[in-house]
Design a protein around this nucleic acid. Structure first.
Lengths: 301, 301
DNA sequence: TCGCGGCGATAGGCATTCCCTATAACGGCA
DNA sequence: TGCCGTTATAGGGAATGCCTATCGCCGCGA
């Protein structure tokens, strides 16, 4: 059974006339007659009582018409809904973001995303890298913003921007007297995030420390870490975008001698069909960051 | 858009696997792949994210699935309802019957109709000939039982049985003394039905009276007419099947010399597609009447 | 590291279906 | 009786659908 035939049936029932029904359907009268006859044979039921002056639906046809109308209406709504869904730059876009990036990047780019992609409903999801990758692979995210390269042929990624690390020091710390701090010098009393944060590993690697520190002070969030540094518990290494938040709590920032940093990427499933949405989101973020970096290097730091 | 493609879509969504979905649909995997891809192109929306290990529906697909399921379900119910309607000997059958026949024929044939055609819901509709023909032509009746021939090429009819008229006399009437009454002798004080009843015209014609009678006594129904005759207002001519009812009110019945009578036919629209139902109903009635006539001639009269 | 196997995509050939134009058949009407 | 309007039928050509065979991709294990 074909939806087209059902439309033919409705047209004949509506017009009571094969010729006009055919015209309404945009086909010739013989075509429509043949198809209706075939539908009658398929259903095993006479649908119309034909005379040369009128075409009347049979009782069986009347009983079927409701279902036919429903089926055609549903088919039409499939087309209508699909038309609304057609724009890949519209609809939900679940974007995973690592915790050391989200609070500092989102305020920066959210307005720009709304501006550039008004129909895209970006839903941020904050979690650590491995959790984000799991969700991404499970189709629970459309893309993710990470500070690490992604592995595996099922995922793809693109670099959005490089983010330098900064030495974060209590004002009274000896290193605060220097204009530039060497990464290795931070290692002495550096505080780090809890396990699972990529920033923890990157900070340790940057200052030449492979393993974890002995102390019990491992902050669950970058915000906590900043407060701990401000309180004089030690030093740390923060990503550039967190500079504002660090200064807000009275932390002294210094550039790093070897210019340690991290690269922020947007990642997606290699087979993800809305690639253009990923590209668009990535480009908006990258463009916003290019502007910000220019301002930041000239100003704050 | 084709219903078949929608079924393919549902199968892929359900199995998450083109090969198994194709097997479930009874087609080859390439066929199903091609059709799903064409559906995606038609809708302008990617429906599945394909990898070599899994096929996941996209968000757009999820949004569409409900409508697709509805459309397919409606299509299935069209087939199911049609299957139930397929038997022409099932369903409503609106049967018009003239008033001088209905009360006497129906008790006789109703049980037989239920027996022989249990799935046919025969709905009697009592009205005069012209009204029945109007309703028949308006598709408001499936067939009609008439005592006249039908005209016009849009209608067809078949004889079911011949029904003799009988002279109906008050017991004290002079003619009641005779064994056989001549039609012309009844004309003297014959009562007739109101205009519109075919029996009125046929009775008048049988006794050689072309026009109407002068008196004001024109019964609206045969039942009334019988009561009037029983009360001694005059004589009349009744159809054979009403014999029982006439005797119940104390009327004397006599055969007519020229064997006047009427022919009962079943009529239907020439293009009516459920011809077999008409034939079946007609045959049941005719068969029942053959049996009854044999008993009647041997017994009552 | 190199086949191997599973899976979806693609290609080419064949059958069916669909649609068109032309025309027949039928009934109504003047 | 011939004409007109309507539906049915016939035949040819195009499009669609389906099949088998094969490719390309990817993960896995020897």
């Amino acid at each position: 059974m074909n939806l087209r035939d059902l439309r033919y049936l409705l047209a004949v029932a509506e017009h009571g006339h094969f010729g006009r029904a055919a015209e309404a359907c945009g086909v010739s009268q013989p075509t429509l007659s043949v198809q209706v006859r075939k539908l009658e044979e398929l259903l095993g039921v006479a649908l119309f009582e034909r005379t040369s002056k009128a075409v009347a639906p049979t009782a069986a046809c009347e009983r079927l018409l409701g279902h036919v109308r429903m089926a055609v209406a549903e088919a039409d709504s499939i087309l209508a809904v699909a038309a609304n869904l057609r724009d890949p730059l519209a609809g939900r876009f679940r974007l995973g973001i690592i915790p050391t990036l989200a609070p500092y990047l989102l305020p920066l780019v959210f307005a720009a995303l709304k501006d550039a992609l008004p129909a895209l409903e970006v839903e941020p999801w904050e979690d650590q890298t491995t959790a984000l990758l799991d969700r991404l692979r499970a189709h629970e995210l459309d893309a993710a913003l990470l500070a690490t390269a992604v592995d595996g042929p099922d995922l793809a990624s693109e670099v959005l921007f490089d983010e330098p690390f900064l030495a974060a020091l209590p004002p009274e710390h000896p290193l605060a007297a220097r204009a530039v701090v060497a990464e290795e010098d931070l290692a002495e009393d550096m505080l780090v995030l809890a396990e699972g944060h990529c920033l923890r590993d990157q900070a340790l690697a940057a200052c030449g420390r492979g393993g974890a520190l002995g102390g019990a002070l491992r902050a669950a969030s970058l915000s906590t870490l900043l407060n701990m540094v401000a309180a004089g518990y030690g030093t740390t290494m923060i990503p550039g975008l967190a500079a504002g938040a660090a200064q807000d709590v009275g932390i002294v920032l210094r550039p790093l001698a070897a210019q340690a940093g991290r690269t922020v990427r947007i990642a997606w499933r290699a087979r993800y069909p809305r690639r253009s949405a990923v590209d668009a989101v990535g480009e908006v973020i990258a463009a916003r960051l290019r502007g910000f970096a220019a301002g930041a290097t000239a100003g704050t730091i």
